[in-house]
Amino acid sequence: MRSQPSQDGDGVKIQRIHDFGGGLDPFLMLDELGSDSPDDYLGGFPSHPHRGIQTLTYVLHGGLTHEDHLGHTSTIRAGDAQWMHTGRGIVHSEMPLTDSRGLHGFQMWLNLPARDKLSPATYRDVRSDEMPHLIGQDADLIALGGRWRATDGEAVEGPLNALAGNGAVGHARLAAGGVLNLETADETLAIYVFEGTLTVADDTVAAGQLARLEEGQTLLLRSEDGAQCLILAGTPHREAIAHYGPFVMNDMREIEQALSDYRDGTFTGQ
């Protein structure tokens, strides 16, 4: 699956992969924001609503400032992440910041199970020094969330431990000749390469591609010239998905209710 150019917010240019049909369940979407031209992103994402999902935003260069109706105000910079459990509803904005290398980051959407779609909204940011590293051969994995185990038995757990669907997200970095060997038992397992070329088992995955892997296989990553990727893992909800703009529910009646609640001002009622 290859990422496709798109725009969101106030004209922000992104590369997007999405599957609202359940093929990456519990994940729904992965956006890559990356440019050294401020005109591509400085419009940012002005105030907008969400219901029924979690978002995880991770920044490699530049930064993002978050504000929401709950009173949270936070800025994340290179290496930091922010997690938002939208539940019943949250209204927020995300405005980009730049550094000498421009802006480069990711936002993932995770679907909430039906039982949690109308739960209270919450927010958390995580700093880079809170994220443990799992070390390979000229390679490492930064654990944003979930538990990760190397084949030699070493294990780490990322600070974001409440991702929907027992979700786990890791950032793998391989130098030239690097090798990272992980044990996995997740039914949903996918790798998005965003720099270089990666050999996953016997398959080659290039930058801008997402590979969906088989359940429970040993995950052997190698790169001849160096590469970076995100690894996504989790347990599917196996529930119906209804999607409209920033809302993800289980049927269109619930989508219509979300639209009505947003119009009449009851959207964020807890």
Rank of each mutant, 00 (worst) to 15 (best):
G226C: 14
Q228N: 13
G234R: 01
H243F: 07
L259I: 13
G226Y: 14
I255Q: 06
A242T: 01
A233G: 06
T218R: 14
G234P: 05
A242F: 03
L230T: 04
G216D: 07
V248R: 03
I241D: 04
Q228T: 12
Q257A: 15
G216N: 08
L232G: 00
M249L: 12
A240Q: 13
I241V: 15
L220V: 11
A227R: 01
R253M: 01
S223F: 10
G226H: 15
R238H: 14
R253D: 10
V248L: 08
M252T: 08
E224D: 15
L232A: 03
A233D: 04
S223E: 07
I241M: 08
S223M: 08
Q228I: 08
E239H: 00
E224Y: 07
T235M: 15
V248Y: 03
A240G: 10
N250G: 00
E224R: 14
E224M: 13
R238M: 07
I231H: 03
R238A: 12
G226Q: 12
G234A: 03
T218P: 13
H243Q: 15
I231E: 00
D225Y: 13
G226E: 15
S223H: 10
P246Q: 08
G216C: 06
A233E: 01
G245V: 00
I231Y: 05
F247N: 01
L232E: 05
I255T: 10
L219N: 04
I255W: 06
A240H: 14
P246S: 12
Q257P: 05
T218Y: 11
L221M: 12
F247T: 02
G234H: 03
R253S: 01
Q217P: 04
P236K: 07
M249G: 01
Q257S: 11
R238Y: 14
I241N: 02
P236M: 06
